[in-house]
Simulated scan of single mutants.
Amino acid sequence: MSAAALRVLALLGALLAAGAAPAAERPSVASTNVCTDQMVMTLSDAAQIKGLSPYSRDPSQSWLAAEARRFKRLSGGAEDLMMLRPDLVVSGSYDKRATREMLQQQGVKVVTFNVMPDSLDEVKQQIRKMAALLGHPDRAELEVARLDAAIARARAAVAPRSLRVLPLWRRGWVSGQGSLISLLFAEVGLINAASDLGVASGGYASLEAIVKSKPDLILVADGADYAEDEGTALLLHPALQRFYPATKRIVIPEQLTVCGGVMLADALDLLVAELTRIAR
C-alpha cells in the first residue's frame, strides 16, 4: 500500500475516533471578532450560530463576508449578546476586555483566541480548539489536513528557487517578522525581504528604499491597474511598475492573511498559482 493511501487511512481513522458531538450537545455560539467569525462559519453548523461580529460582512476584512450575511450581525457590545444568551461566546485577544468580563459575570462562557498566532502549529491548535468547543472535532482534522496539503504544495512550488519577496501593502507598509505572511514565507521556503529594509516586525518603506533593495518579487493585495485611493497609489508609481510589473508581483488579497485560521490554506494555494503564473 502506498504512503499516500496509508495517510488517507490514518486520517479516516482519526476522524472516526474523534467523531462529532450529538446535535443536542452542540452549543449555540456567538463571535465578537472577524477572525473567530470565519472559524465559526467553517467549523460549526449554521443552526448553532447566534451572531457574528460587526465586521463579519466587511469584504475588506473577512474572506467569508458574503456567507456572513446569512447570520445576525452583532453590535460589538455585551447587551445584544446577553439578550441572545448563546451557550458560548468566542472572541479575539484584542477585543474589549470589559465586554468579555461583563458576559462572564452574567454566566456566559467566553473563550478567547489569539488571532495573531506565533506559528502555524498554533494555528492548527486553535482550529482544533474551536472545533472541539463547537462539538465538531472531525471538521478540525479535515481543515488541518487541508492546511498541511497546501503547505506541501507550496513547498514544492518554491523549492527550485530561492526567492526574496517583499510583502508590500497600502501606503508602503511592509510586513516583517511575526506577521502571518512572514510565517507562511518561512514555512514554505520564501525569504521575507523586509529585513533588507531594516524593517523588523513591520513599518513603512519609501519608494526609493524599496527599489534600491531589489527584492526578486513583491507581494501585493490587489492586481488592479488603477488606484482606488491614495493608499494604493504608491503601488502604481511608474518607478515601481517599471521594476515590478505584473510578472514580478504576487497578488494575494489581504483578507487571506490577516487571521490565523482556515483561510491560510487558501492563501497558500493562491501563492502556488501566482508563482506558477510568474514562472511562465
Rank of each mutant, 00 (worst) to 15 (best):
L142M: 11
V144S: 11
V144Y: 06
V144H: 01
R146G: 12
R146M: 13
L147W: 03
L147F: 01
A149T: 12
I151N: 08
R153G: 13
A156S: 08
A159K: 01
P160F: 09
R161Q: 15
L163Y: 07
L163T: 05
R164K: 09
L166C: 13
L166M: 04
L168W: 10
W169L: 12
W169D: 13
R170F: 08
R170K: 04
R171W: 12
G172F: 06
W173R: 07
W173E: 14
W173A: 15
V174Y: 05
S175A: 14
G178E: 00
S179H: 04
S179A: 14
S179C: 03
I181D: 09
I181A: 09
I181W: 07
S182F: 04
F185M: 03
A186I: 07
E187P: 02
E187A: 15
I191T: 15
S195E: 11
S195P: 09
D196I: 02
L197R: 03
V199Y: 03
A200G: 02
G202F: 01
G202S: 08
G203K: 07
A205F: 07
A205C: 05
S206D: 14
L207T: 10
E208K: 03
A209K: 09
V211F: 08
V211Q: 02
K212S: 15
S213Q: 09
P215H: 09
P215Q: 03
I218R: 00
I218A: 10
L219V: 11
G223N: 03
A224E: 07
A227W: 07
A227G: 11
A227M: 04
E228H: 02
E228V: 06
D229C: 10
D229R: 00
T232V: 09
A233N: 06
L234I: 12
L234K: 06
H237D: 13
P238C: 10
A239R: 01
L240M: 14
Q241D: 08
R242P: 06
Y244T: 08
Y244W: 05
Y244D: 12
P245L: 04
P245W: 00
A246S: 15
A246K: 07
K248V: 15
R249M: 11
I250Y: 14
V251N: 04
P253S: 14
Q255D: 09
C259I: 02
G260A: 00
G261K: 11
G261P: 00
G261N: 13
G261I: 10
V262Q: 13
L264N: 00
L264T: 04
D266Y: 11
D269I: 14
V272N: 06
E274W: 04
E274F: 03
